[in-house]
């Protein structure tokens, strides 16, 4: 039950993108079509889940016993960067068109603050291994959710008549802001 609550909290109530405002770059960059938003979301979810597991192991089996917690940032970034490389190779092999659609945003997952944030949060909140895995999956699911909602809205926007000054970046920011406001409604749910 506790794990389920944690999942819902990470995915919806404390959504990484819309409540913590982490990972805004891919949120704006890859949310033009639903299909690429889903793939991007899944890629981030994969990286987040594995990151949560590996960083937990590194932190509790390597950094804590040897009292070198100061190196958490370095080692976490190392983990994330390697994982992103792996995902990049995998996607390039499996689906070249998808690789092209995600473009620069795929390697940029490395610098996605949502992922480093996830690793640091689970250390800060002293999650157990299982909890931190669930937290990772939940945060990834939340990221995917935010990305897909945004992409859905932006696909509709393509067909609507937007006032000239709001076109492009302007309307995107407004939509993102409104979405964040909507997600505030979940506050206090858990």
């Amino acid at each position: 039950m506790n794990l389920l609550l944690l999942f819902i909290s990470a995915a919806i109530v404390n959504n990484f993108v819309l409540t913590y405002f982490l990972g805004i770059c891919p949120f704006v960059g890859v949310s033009k079509r639903i299909s690429s938003a889903v793939s991007m979301g899944l890629a981030v979810m994969f990286v987040m889940t594995i990151t949560a597991a590996v960083t937990w192991l590194i932190y509790h089996l390597l950094l804590v016993p040897y009292h070198i917690e100061i190196l958490e940032y370095v080692s976490f970034i190392l983990v994330i960067a390697s994982l992103v490389q792996l995902v990049e190779m995998f996607i390039k092999k499996v689906s070249k068109p998808l690789y092209d659609t995600l473009g620069i945003y795929l390697p940029l997952i490395t610098t996605n603050c949502a992922i480093l944030g996830l690793a640091l949060f689970s250390v800060l909140r002293e999650y157990s291994f299982a909890e931190s895995m669930v937290f990772g999956v939940g945060a990834g699911a939340g990221f995917t959710l935010a990305l897909v909602i945004m992409a859905g809205i932006r696909e509709e926007l393509e067909l609507s008549n937007i006032p000239k000054p709001f076109r492009g970046a302007g309307i995107t920011m407004i939509v993102a802001g409104s979405l964040a406001l909507a997600f505030m409604g979940f506050a206090g749910l858990i």
């Binding site: 590194i58 390597l62 950094l63 040897y66 009292h67 070198i68 190196l71 370095v74 080692s75 190392l78 983990v79 390697s82 490389q85 792996l86 190779m89 995998f90 390039k92 092999k93």
Partner: peptide, 28 residues
């Protein structure tokens, strides 16, 4: 602490790069 830090980070780096180069071959 210094030695442990260097050894652990170097070890992690080596581990990941080995994993990546294996993956590179597989997904070439």
């Amino acid at each position: 602490t210094l030695i442990i830090a260097i050894a652990s980070m170097g070890g992690l780096g080596l581990l990941f790069s080995a994993g990546l180069s294996l993956a590179e071959k597989k997904f070439y």
